[in-house]
Simulated assay, not measured.
Amino acid sequence: MAEEYFHLKVAWPGGRTSEGYIDAGNLQTKMSIPTEMDGPGIGTR
């Protein structure tokens, strides 16, 4: 079976109510904790 490797950078500069970032080459997106869990609900959860 062939192995595949994915390289990405993740930054989460704050606490529970902040947003983070994912950079994986062609994918750059924001992420955060969902509003149902008292987060900001921004971007990918």
Rank of each mutant, 00 (worst) to 15 (best):
Y5G: 08
R16H: 15
T44E: 13
G15D: 07
E36H: 07
V10T: 13
E36D: 09
L27R: 13
P40C: 00
M37E: 15
G25R: 04
R45K: 10
T44C: 10
E4A: 09
M31E: 03
E4N: 05
P40A: 04
K30M: 08
P34S: 09
E3L: 09
R45E: 13
T17H: 04
P40S: 02
D23Q: 12
G14L: 02
S18T: 08
T29V: 14
M37S: 14
E3W: 08
I42S: 01
M37T: 10
D23A: 08
T35Y: 08
S32E: 00
I42L: 04
M37P: 06
P13E: 03
H7I: 06
P34L: 11
T35V: 15
M1H: 08
M31A: 06
T35F: 06
K30H: 09
I33L: 04
A24P: 03
N26K: 15
T17I: 05
S18V: 04
T44I: 14
A11K: 15
D38L: 05
M37N: 09
D38E: 10
E19P: 03
F6Y: 10
L8M: 12
F6V: 13
I22Q: 01
L27W: 13
A2E: 14
N26E: 15
Q28L: 11
W12N: 14
Y5I: 12
P13A: 03
